[in-house]
């Protein structure tokens, strides 16, 4: 299983440009194209660049945060092809042809996404550093529940899945908020879920 999985990962990026042969001492770079917030972007990147650093340092989309760079905190959560991921745990070149939605793609100061609006209303943040990750995660969580994907606290796998505070808390537990806004974040997500019906 494990070996097969590892092998399968290689052909998964056939579209990725072959690494450029480079002069001695220069980093190995590769070209990667992806859609970011609906816009096609092509970057020539050091192959060691994470998706997170591609967004922050190369596209200057700094709304996605680096809290730990090791997949421990969730601050870098973005939505890739409809699924939330930790963007620090994937190299940019592994994401050839994907569609990335970052916090900047959800809404703007003058036109907030309903989840962003709910976070403001319920004060679902304090310092604001985990917030883009919490919001991207929250948007994806509601989609996951809608799609019937169970979690650790889902009691009945055959019944229609419902949004509950327990489900929200469980599914958002990969997004740490050290300011401790959890109680308010659950209120914000529940508010949006309620409005979505």
């Amino acid at each position: 299983m494990v070996a097969a999985g590892a092998c399968a990962a290689l052909p998964a990026m056939p579209g990725a440009a072959r690494a450029q042969p480079v002069s001695r001492g220069e980093p190995v770079t590769a070209s990667v194209s992806m859609s970011v917030n609906g816009e096609n972007r092509t970057l020539q990147l050091d192959t060691r660049t994470t998706l997170l650093d591609a967004l922050r340092e190369h596209l200057h989309l700094t709304g996605t945060k680096k809290g730990c760079d090791h997949g421990q905190c969730g601050a870098c959560t973005v939505i890739v092809d409809g699924q939330r991921i930790n963007s620090c745990l994937t190299l940019a070149i592994m994401n050839q042809g994907v569609q990335v939605t970052t916090i900047e793609g959800l809404g703007t100061v003058d036109d907030l996404h309903p989840m962003q609006e709910a976070f403001v209303k319920h004060d679902g943040f304090q310092c604001g550093y985990c917030t883009p990750g919490q919001i991207c995660s929250s948007v994806a969580v509601l989609d996951e529940i809608k799609a019937g994907i169970p979690s650790h606290v889902t009691a009945d796998l055959t019944a229609p899945m419902a949004v509950s505070e327990a489900e929200i808390r469980e599914r958002l537990s990969g997004n740490i908020c050290r300011c401790g806004a959890y109680s308010n974040i659950v209120a914000a997500v529940s508010d949006v879920a309620g409005r979505q019906g």
């Binding site: 989309l61 700094t62 709304g63 996605t64 945060k65 970052t102 916090i103 900047e104 959800l106 809404g107 703007t108 100061v109 907030l112 962003q116 609006e117 976070f119 403001v120 004060d123 943040f125 604001g128 550093y129 917030t131 883009p132 919001i135």
Partner: peptide, 11 residues
């Protein structure tokens, strides 16, 4: 708040 929730508050 709006800047923080849109990722436009810059650290």
């Amino acid at each position: 708040g709006p800047r923080k929730v849109t990722g436009t508050a810059r650290y």
